[in-house]
């Protein structure tokens, strides 16, 4: 697993790598437990600390999962941007694996944000979708993530895949604020409905609690995906080393 190779061990590195057992990826159970625990208790706290909303009733409780999902997707998005810059700058293999892990989690969370928002929007605004700046830029962000993952799935060479997805990650990251601005102007100029954004003090605790829950869930997803990718990479390397050593090419 270690990427550090001693200079004197170089001559028979292939043989050593072929024999070296690969540790199974460790699931960070404490993180998974923490995420699950805060997520469940967060909903309980949300229900206990806030009265049903005057207009929306308990429908308002969707906010406790919708808003934190959006925040967590932004964290994932920043990890993608940072990892992409690191890949292009330092040509770091592990940054690419982190990039992929964060993009997958980001795509799920952005999709979740859109679906939850839509479920809330139908009874509240009377429509499943409105061309609001936030909605539209979130949809575009989702599509950028989808394109990023499609590109990765359709590119075979790992080194090329790393460079390409980093380029897509950086360009996508630059685009999202511009999309937000352009849709905002587009909407403002047309003078239509705006979205309710003020939050009452009663909702703050539940919202904060859930924000941590989603951050933990994101960390758990990204860690698991990252470790799995490291494992797959090590398995590929070992299969390669075995093939070079003239043995079986079985990856396991």
């Amino acid at each position: 697993m270690s990427s550090v190779t001693m200079p004197e061990s170089r001559p028979d590195r292939g043989a050593a790598a072929a024999a070296e057992p690969i540790a199974r990826p460790k699931v960070p159970w404490w993180l998974v437990g923490l995420a699950f625990g805060t997520l469940v208790s967060g909903q309980v706290v949300g229900f206990l600390t806030s009265e049903p909303d005057r207009d929306m009733g308990h429908l308002q409780k969707i906010m406790y999962v919708h808003v934190p999902a959006a925040w967590a997707s932004f964290i994932a998005f920043f990890i993608v941007f940072w990892a992409s810059v690191t890949v292009l700058w330092k040509r770091n293999e592990r940054a690419d694996l982190l990039n992929a892990a964060a993009a997958e989690a980001g795509a799920v969370l952005t999709g979740l944000t859109l679906v939850l928002g839509s479920i809330w929007g139908r009874p509240t605004w009377g429509v499943w979708w409105t061309w609001d700046a936030r909605l539209t830029s979130t949809a575009v962000l989702f599509l950028v993530f989808v394109g990023f993952l499609a590109l990765r799935a359709l590119t075979d060479d790992p080194e090329r895949r790393a460079r390409w997805s980093a380029a897509v990650g950086i360009l996508g990251a630059l685009n999202v604020p511009i999309v937000y601005m352009s849709v905002k102007w587009w909407r403002t100029l047309h003078q239509l409905q705006s979205s309710p954004s003020t939050v009452d003090a009663d909702y703050v605790l539940g919202l904060r609690w859930n924000a941590f829950a989603f951050a933990f869930a994101l960390a758990a997803f990204v860690t698991i995906r990252y470790r799995t990718a490291l494992f797959a990479l090590a398995a590929d390397r070992r299969a390669e080393a075995r093939a070079l050593a003239g043995g079986s090419t079985d990856a396991r």
């Binding site: 539209t136 575009v140 599509l143 950028v144 394109g147 499609a150 590109l151 897509v168 360009l171 996508g172 685009n175 511009i178 999309v179 601005m181 352009s182 849709v183």
Partner: peptide, 8 residues
């Protein structure tokens, strides 16, 4: 890949 980038 391209069209989501071209929204603005």
């Amino acid at each position: 890949l391209l069209f989501p980038m071209l929204v603005p």
